[in-house]
Amino acid sequence: MKEKTIDYILRATWQAVARMYNEEANKYGASMAVGFALLSIDKEEGTPSTSLGPRMGMEATSVTRTLKSMEDRGLIERRPNPDDGRGVLIYLTEEGKNKRALSKETVLRFNEKVKSVVTPEQLANFIEVADKINELIQEKSIFNTNELLSNEKNY
């Protein structure tokens, strides 16, 4: 059998996780993106809208769409940022706090289930490998143009 590439394993696993979370969230009329946003918003202090994209790893347009949907459903409210007149803080409504608790419970249940079938060493190795992959990406060392050019000369 052909060996699976690392990116295939990551993509297939993430798609399965996303599908699982979306199926669960759908039972409550939500989505994984909404659940993730609920968990990313500080439930007491609110969160600047501009920090949600980076915190969630989403593009600004996707965050804007998700927040609009959440506001329409009464899960969040926008308030002017008292420290920055141009900024907006996102706050959870009571309904948003209830849905946030449900999202948190769902994530914790997933984590506990995974931890029940893998050893602490396996989990530590998984986290270490994921951290290394993220490091390589952050350092832009995977597709470094200079490195690629020097390797081409060897062919």
Score class of each variant (00 low, 15 high):
81 N>S: 07
93 T>R: 03
50 T>D: 06
106 T>W: 02
8 Y>L: 03
76 I>E: 01
11 R>D: 11
152 E>M: 11
152 E>H: 10
23 E>F: 04
126 F>R: 03
13 T>A: 10
92 L>D: 05
10 L>C: 05
67 L>D: 09
77 E>Q: 10
27 K>Y: 05
109 R>A: 02
100 R>Y: 06
122 Q>S: 08
83 D>T: 12
82 P>N: 09
120 P>L: 08
140 K>F: 06
43 K>H: 00
109 R>Y: 02
28 Y>F: 12
140 K>D: 15
150 S>K: 13
67 L>A: 04
139 E>F: 10
90 I>S: 06
54 P>M: 00
48 P>Y: 01
93 T>A: 07
118 V>K: 05
108 L>Y: 06
40 S>N: 10
7 D>E: 09
46 G>N: 07
152 E>K: 10
64 T>S: 15
74 G>E: 04
154 N>A: 14
93 T>K: 07
24 E>C: 00
144 N>E: 15
154 N>Y: 14
69 S>L: 01
32 M>D: 08
79 R>Y: 09
1 M>C: 07
4 K>N: 06
34 V>P: 08
119 T>V: 00
124 A>F: 08
134 N>I: 14
27 K>P: 15
29 G>N: 00
142 I>E: 12
19 R>M: 03
86 R>A: 11
3 E>W: 03
136 L>K: 06
34 V>R: 07
47 T>Y: 00
52 L>Q: 04
148 L>M: 13
41 I>T: 00
21 Y>H: 08
21 Y>N: 02
68 K>P: 02
110 F>A: 02
16 A>Q: 01
114 V>K: 05
70 M>C: 06
92 L>A: 03
67 L>K: 06
21 Y>T: 06
108 L>R: 06
56 M>A: 03
73 R>K: 15
87 G>Y: 11
60 A>N: 09
14 W>M: 05
27 K>W: 11
155 Y>N: 12
40 S>Q: 03
42 D>K: 00
101 A>M: 02
139 E>M: 10
43 K>G: 01
122 Q>H: 03
113 K>D: 10
68 K>M: 02
12 A>E: 09
142 I>Y: 13
81 N>F: 01
43 K>T: 00
108 L>V: 00
69 S>G: 02
86 R>N: 15
123 L>V: 10
5 T>I: 01
73 R>V: 05
120 P>R: 01
43 K>I: 00
